[in-house]
Write a protein that binds this DNA or RNA. Structure first.
Lengths: 193, 193
DNA sequence: ATCATTTTGTACCATCTTGCATAAAATTCA
DNA sequence: TGAATTTTATGCAAGATGGTACAAAATGAT
């Protein structure tokens, strides 16, 4: 433990970042005020600024953090050995669970960054990177089992299923329906591959 | 033509509503200011309020109008007689074209209402209704050709492809890639049905 | 021509928002 | 104990925002 001088921070950076992400997820980027965010994080505004920079920097940090947490939540199921269909089903079940956590359902990136993307290059880049990252991970996993010519198409289809889950969770579709839907999608896509 | 008393309006209601929808699509609901909206519509704020009500009423009217225009743009291709695959491909091509129009790509409903849905019941209802409407239309068309047991799953998969197109268009994916992706999705989903 | 009616346009207000300045508080080091 | 350092907390300032009041303008009716 390195002894730092000065008054010690009263907040835990990881917990604060998660609370910030939750605040943005509940209200969207533009509608979330710094007062709300500060209250959610248990900090006051000057501390927020000192720790994370201005509102956009907070949002970009929240997007990045959320993406990492999402990956930690869904990767184990996807990377598990065994039939591709089981891995994909496990992946989507984990995603449904992850998107259902917290005060508001849906994906922070896919449901709030979309609103701001055309007006802000960095947010658009974060959105595009997140989708590309998901597609890359799905592609790598699918390539272990499927025929070469079908990998890209299958991966893109699975990306759409994930996006569909994120958006429909936001629209109020309950978790069991989303899981059933994911299973049907996987079954339809893998039929005779 | 009914002769109305008083000074005649200087705006065309349909054109104004379309401009309002475009303004919201470019910036999202919360970030779009009434000044921007008024400028886009070629009206000033008092006229805007008189014509469409407050900001949320404007947004709900824009969502409804956008949904109608979307339906007009994609229905003909979907309802055309012939192989289901061709109908679906035509539907998605039309959707890609529709989502690519205007100043910002992506779907007004699927890319901006998602941000506000948890904080506003009416917007959430508009989002859910739009998705349900699309699903119903796809279900009806698919039921004309596919086996009973597969209709629902196929329709849900196609809903996801559409949502995936909307979001990925917003993320900057170009139209040819989106159309290719839609074709691959249709092919994968219809294989051996 | 005058009045009633409806829309337009300017200006305005109250509120909220972002971001920061500044002083108090809590800690380490000498 | 006192100086240095870092965080917290109160509060403030500049600007943007949603919404409206009110007078001018443009039309139909009498």
């Amino acid at each position: 433990m390195i002894a730092r001088r000065g008054r010690p921070p009263a907040y835990d950076r990881e917990a604060a970042l998660m609370a910030i992400a939750e605040a943005f997820r509940l209200r969207g980027y533009a509608a979330a005020s710094l007062d709300e965010i500060a209250r959610a994080a248990g900090m006051n505004r000057p501390s927020l600024f000192a720790a994370f920079g201005n509102k956009k920097a907070m949002y970009l940090a929240a997007l990045e953090d959320y993406r990492r947490r999402m990956e930690r939540a869904v990767s184990p199921a996807l990377e598990r050995e065994g039939p591709l269909g089981d891995a994909l089903t496990g992946f989507f079940d984990a995603a449904v669970g992850f998107y259902g956590e917290g005060a508001a359902p849906g994906c922070l990136v896919l449901c709030t960054a979309t609103a701001e993307a055309p007006a802000d290059e960095e947010i658009a880049a974060a959105l595009a990177d997140t989708i590309r990252g998901i597609e890359a991970q799905l592609t790598a996993r699918i390539a272990r089992e499927a025929a070469d010519g079908e990998v890209a198409g299958l991966a893109q289809l699975m990306v759409s299923v994930l996006i569909g889950i994120a958006v429909q969770a936001r629209a109020g579709v309950d978790e069991t329906a989303l899981k059933r839907f994911a299973r049907a999608g996987v079954a339809a896509a893998l039929r005779q591959s």
